[in-house]
């Protein structure tokens, strides 16, 4: 099912055009790397605050709303460019074992973010001013930091393992 979908995108005019473009493909790849770097930087900042390592004097209820829009905008650009790159690469990506792992790490990171929002984000003001945050909050921060670091590492490994099945 996924393989067929990737094949469809790969064979499409967009997939072919992107793959064969001398300038657009490198540009999309560059933007993907930069937007991922920035959104990862923002999310790492928030995670390190949840873990009480950075910005200890600023409550997370203040920090999070100020960074959320920029972080989500960065991720939106990352996902769009990532989708375009996947279109250009096609079903061969599934044969590189780190690609499914990268997708799994993104899935875990997304579930973790939803769990954080559902369990703690909705009543952030009740615990944000405490000197030490609840265990679940710290755990969520640690999972987020680990999964997004994994996403970057696994993503960077893809070109190296291309052809090593």
């Amino acid at each position: 099912m996924i393989r067929e979908l990737l094949q469809y995108f790969y064979s499409s005019q967009w997939g072919e055009g992107l793959r064969e473009s001398l300038y657009v493909y490198p540009l999309v790849e560059g933007v993907h790397l930069l937007s991922l770097s920035i959104s990862f930087g923002f999310i790492a900042l928030i995670d390190l605050r949840l873990l009480n390592i950075l910005f200890r004097s600023v409550p997370i209820a203040v920090l999070l709303p100020q960074l959320r829009l920029w972080m989500l905008s960065g991720f939106a650009v990352t996902f769009v460019t990532g989708f375009l790159l996947t279109m250009a690469e096609g079903p061969m990506l599934l044969d590189i074992f780190v690609f499914p792992l990268k997708m799994l790490a993104i899935f875990i990171a997304a579930i973790n973010a939803l769990w954080f929002e559902y369990s703690y984000g909705r009543h952030i003001n009740t615990w944000s001013a405490r000197p030490s945050y609840p265990f679940g909050v710290k755990l969520s921060g640690a999972i987020s930091l680990f999964t997004w670091t994994s996403v970057i590492i696994l993503g960077r490994l893809i070109p190296y393992l291309d052809g090593v099945h």
Partner: peptide, 28 residues
């Protein structure tokens, strides 16, 4: 990986300070 880590550290610092100068981001 170290190159990307370096890029993240530099870009994050530049973006945080620049956004603040533009009136966005960490206003605290």
């Amino acid at each position: 990986f170290f190159h990307i880590a370096g890029l993240i550290l530099v870009l994050l610092s530049v973006v945080l300070v620049s956004l603040r100068l533009l009136g966005f981001g960490l206003l605290a």
